[in-house]
Design a protein around this nucleic acid. Structure first.
Length: 304
DNA sequence: ATGTCCCAGTCTCTGGGA
């Protein structure tokens, strides 16, 4: 089973590139981020023509997460089960200010069970500036991810949770820790937030297979030739529970997909191969889903 | 070296976000 994650930087602008990559890489499940589409605009047909079901959770102009799957999708969860997000496709010309920023109004989480594994596609808030309200919201969002793990799934269950986490686990995941020092994506609270996820019972699938070598990045800024100098960061992660970790046989970051033409995403896909010996999840997902149902309360829509 | 790319609206440019 081949799994992957890719921040596509607009699925509208990148539909053709994603279709070509699916044809070449043939993942069974692809997590995507920054689709920048509403659910109504999600290009389900091209994916279906390529053999994939598309599960999409979007808001329009910004953010947006999705799962493309060849092996079916059931038990879909959006936004941690906390209710609807905003619609940024209507009346969104006014920027979200510091005071009204709420990462839980944004489409940053979608999950589904595919091929006996629960997958979660995440798009962490950027944080903008360490110490800003956006940075504080980013840390709150990571706490919500951990709480969702605590309340709805178990480390004993087969789970893949990942995507664009907008944070680097260690200095080995940054081209120049000194240059990046003091910025978002490398700060200690962000790294502690990632560590809290691992401590719950998750393994970094790429590192488990590819080792600790530095210089293995998944994102490079478009500007200043940073890709060609390999000045980037590894912020696109696949964290997996033990039942999945023991099936890892290979992992790679597809740098080729970061090259043009045409204009590529600023992220490269991260690919992990699992062997086929994964036993069916003994307890089944019914138990886990009943816990989810019990914890999921429709959130009262905000006025206006 | 504030250098690129994406989006929507003010619509062949601008402002906002990454």
């Amino acid at each position: 089973m081949r799994i992957a994650t890719w921040n596509v930087n607009s699925l509208k602008a990148r539909t053709d590139a994603v279709e070509r990559w699916l044809e070449r890489a043939q993942p069974d499940v692809l997590l995507m981020q920054e689709t920048k589409l509403s659910d109504r605009e999600a290009p389900e047909l091209p994916f279906r023509m390529a053999g994939y079901e598309l599960v999409h959770h979007g808001e329009g102009r910004w953010n947006g997460v999705a799962i493309a799957t060849k092996v079916g999708a059931t038990d879909v969860i959006t936004n941690f089960g906390d209710g609807p997000v905003r619609d940024s496709s209507a009346g969104a010309s006014v920027a979200v200010g510091e005071d009204d920023f709420d990462p839980f109004d944004e489409a940053r989480m979608v999950s589904a069970v595919c091929g006996g594994i629960r997958f979660v596609s995440l798009y962490a808030p950027n944080g903008r500036v360490v110490g800003s309200p956006f940075y504080a919201g980013k840390l709150r969002w990571f706490e919500r991810v951990r709480r969702w793990l605590d309340e709805t799934v178990s480390p004993d269950e087969p789970l893949v949770i990942g995507g664009d986490l907008n944070a680097t686990p260690t200095d080995a995941d940054v081209w120049d820790p000194v240059a990046a020092h003091g910025g978002t994506h490398v700060s200690e609270p962000e790294r502690e937030a990632l560590a809290r996820l691992r401590e719950w019972g998750l393994t970094d699938a790429y590192r488990a297979s590819a080792g600790d070598a530095p210089g293995r990045f998944s994102w490079w800024d478009y500007r200043a030739g940073m890709f060609h100098r390999n000045e980037g960061m590894r912020i696109d992660l696949l964290y997996v529970t033990e039942p999945v970790a023991k099936r890892i046989v290979w992992a790679e970051i597809d740098r080729e997909a970061r090259k043009g033409p045409p204009i590529p995403s600023d992220h490269a896909p991260v690919v992990v191969d699992l062997d086929e010996r994964g036993a069916p999840f003994e307890a089944g997902w019914d138990g886990a889903l009943s816990r989810i149902a019990a914890r999921t309360r429709p959130r009262k829509p905000k006025a206006g």
